[in-house]
Design a binder for these strands. Sequence first.
DNA 1: CTGTTAGCGCTTTCAA
DNA 2: TTGAAAGCGCTAACAG
Lengths: 307, 307
Amino acid sequence: VNTVSRALTGKRDVSAKTRERILVLAGQLGYTPNLLARSLLRGRSATIGLLVTDCTNPFYAVLIQAVEETLSRAGLGLLLATSTEDVEKERLAIAMLRERRIDGLLFTPVDVDAPHVHELLSGDLPVVLLGRRPAGYKGGFVGTDNVRGARLVAGHLLDQGHRRVAHLTREDAASSARERLIGYRKALVGRGIAFRRDLVHGVPPSVKGGGLAAEWLDARATRPTAVFAYNDAQAVGLMLALQDAGIELPAGLSVVGFDDIELASLVRPALTTVAQPTEEIGRLGAEMLIARIREGTRSRMILLPPN
Amino acid sequence: VNTVSRALTGKRDVSAKTRERILVLAGQLGYTPNLLARSLLRGRSATIGLLVTDCTNPFYAVLIQAVEETLSRAGLGLLLATSTEDVEKERLAIAMLRERRIDGLLFTPVDVDAPHVHELLSGDLPVVLLGRRPAGYKGGFVGTDNVRGARLVAGHLLDQGHRRVAHLTREDAASSARERLIGYRKALVGRGIAFRRDLVHGVPPSVKGGGLAAEWLDARATRPTAVFAYNDAQAVGLMLALQDAGIELPAGLSVVGFDDIELASLVRPALTTVAQPTEEIGRLGAEMLIARIREGTRSRMILLPPN
DNA sequence: CTGTTAGCGCTTTCAA
DNA sequence: TTGAAAGCGCTAACAG
């Protein structure tokens, strides 16, 4: 048994003849090593967990793809789980992944302040957070500089002369929403314009949410001249609702988004938006986790500039 | 050790008092059962593999989400791999999944006639194919009735009076493309219109591919009055290329697609298309595989009607 | 009801 | 260079 093991894993102390014989036979018999047994012994499963909120979201779809490619190049497997923005489902998913003894976890928390997230981050499992992080967190993280991105794109509207710029946000606990709100505020304040709470409105971060925002706009006495949406899906939903109501864009309302998903370039007029380096987030996150697991490299915070 | 195992897995022969003591202690110690060890013993890993070509494609994104939710409800893990439409990467991915001893595989082959696919399908691992299948295959499959869908949507164009209807296809070995071509042909022949090879053109199944198709159209002497695209991405790419060239739609050209991805409803004019019941494909595929693994139910072919 | 033993397939250590 | 033995954490079978 031992000699076979040594031959197949390419160790030195096997004669060329024996190795040859073993490899041929293994091929004929269709032998596939059992990684479960190896993992049990070594205490490492060569498998990474990825826990996101929703694969359907194009941002996560791209992220998953980038992570998968990076891991597979490193010979690691990918256990995927989704929380569908549900804290309880997230808790169960983490338990499921831990039972399977993942070597590390890439994770987008639903609520960065949930107790089980805190527990996870102070535990032994190597974790790299993607895109969302608790305030004051010092561990591994890769994400977009949301504050900067929001300031950029909201500032763009202001620089075009808009003074009543509304901001669509989301109502759940996503840290990205808080950060984009801060950037929006900074853009205003930096230009000496007062921040007005009543120009901020929370809707779901989806095309449908954008549609709801159109109703909110309609119900207001003085209409904003521009809107900075939390993400592209909202922005497109808003644009379409307005266009379908016969409003000409961008004359009737200027809209900017966030994410630069493919869709942003496919609507007309094309959506002005700020790009998250999504692929890079996935790749760097996976690489950071691999370095942590293999070399024990301490994980850092990487804030990528938006574009 | 045994008593602890029995208590945690909820077996009967443990006194209530002992069980209580064990559960409390396990909680305090943060004990998580090691599924690798259990799997090694039982010969089942409680984990399913899902091998798709590309997570970025919205069709697969929805599929992955549906599969994940079905599996997690059944207490199963999901090992995800992607082939990026590359046959060799696909072969390696299958080996990777087998090493990890998945209990079954949900699979979208790049090329249904590749030797390693044949080998896989005649092996012992329970497999359910999604969306694509080899000719004459008799095992587990869930997919859309592409022939019927194509006939439906191409027929729609013909019924509107179009006579020169072109078909965009893809050039690789995807069985879905062959089937949609057959449906297109049937729609023509059923109405007594001759099939013309020169009205069929292969481009990549993406927005960009649709853009290429616009160039192909321009280069033709007599222009088709309508186009049936392989999928929505192609259709949208074509529409945008024409619109950006100043052509009015649908007056200048009628376009229909296939898939009914979200994007189809977000372009203007909204794209006429035929819906694949994507979520259902994912859910039924996963359920079929679970039934096969747990009850030994023989897997069938399920051809879902398009919409 | 509880404890002991064996063994899943592999790799590490040590002996031949 | 090869083989034998031990043990990773768990559960099935059986003894107490």
